[in-house]
Computed example of a mutant assay.
Amino acid sequence: MKNIVSRWLLSFCACALIFGCSDDFTPKEGEQFTTLPANLATYRIAPVAEIFSLTCSHCRKMESVLPELEMALQQEVGKVHVTFNEGAKAAAMVYYSAMMQLGQKPDAKLMDALFAAIQDNVALTPEQQQAAIEKVFTDNNLISPSAFDQKQRQDLGRRLKIAQAITEQGQIQAVPTFIVAGRYQVLTSGHDDIKELAETINYLLHKH
């Protein structure tokens, strides 16, 4: 989201920037967050969920920020892959094919491999791109989506429908972003560092 991720990465080099924000920071609707047009809590997404796409370069950079955010929040951040265009839909199939087999979101190493397979092979032929994606699965002892049986395909289809419903009902048009309590979208561009972001998220978690 614009230059916010880059600013965060640079801020990690100076702890004062992480912990030295103004004590007067108060999240404001329209500046640090918005209320979603629909309550997405019915889809049982995590209380704090990153909305992302494997096709998004800023989302890839965000991966190195997430551990700091989780530490500040003292809780895990979930993930929802968007499906707002054809490229994102194809990438969502890749992500959820891994997630459903693991029973949880992929770890940092696998996420890096998935981002690389999607983003670093755009100059390859479709066949070569598919081979690169399948290699990530086999290297991690996972079944490639192309080898799924009927039950696995149905499970994947169900997860993709939920992701599409979240994308459409939440009117998610840009990533990365965060959904809090299924009701609020964080405006990442309205924050200067990880401490402010964590403060906004905690504020929204306790907002009634």
Rank of each mutant, 00 (worst) to 15 (best):
V80T: 05
F115Y: 15
L156Q: 06
L124P: 08
Q154M: 09
A117M: 14
L102T: 05
A117D: 15
N121V: 04
Q129F: 10
M111I: 02
V80Q: 13
Q119G: 02
N121Q: 12
T138H: 08
F137G: 04
K89F: 00
L124M: 13
L156W: 05
T125N: 10
Q150N: 07
E86Y: 00
A116I: 12
K105M: 11
Y95M: 01
A147M: 11
M99Q: 14
A117L: 11
T125E: 13
Q150E: 11
Q154S: 06
Q129R: 13
V122C: 06
H81G: 04
D149C: 07
P145L: 01
A123R: 11
L110E: 08
L156N: 03
A123G: 10
A91I: 01
V82K: 05
L114F: 03
V136N: 13
H81T: 00
Q119R: 13
N140G: 04
Q130N: 14
S97A: 14
L124A: 12
G87S: 01
Q128W: 00
Q101F: 07
N141H: 14
D149K: 07
A98Q: 10
R153V: 10
V94D: 15
N140P: 06
F137E: 03
N140E: 09
F84K: 00
M99G: 01
E134N: 15
L114D: 07
G103A: 04
K89E: 02
V94Y: 10
A108K: 12
M93C: 09
L102A: 07
Q130R: 13
L114I: 04
D120H: 03
T138P: 01
F137T: 09
E86H: 00
Q104S: 11
D112G: 13
I133S: 03
A147F: 09
M100I: 05
A98F: 09
D149M: 09
H81F: 08
T138V: 15
A132C: 01
A116C: 11
L142G: 13
A88I: 02
F148A: 08
A98L: 06
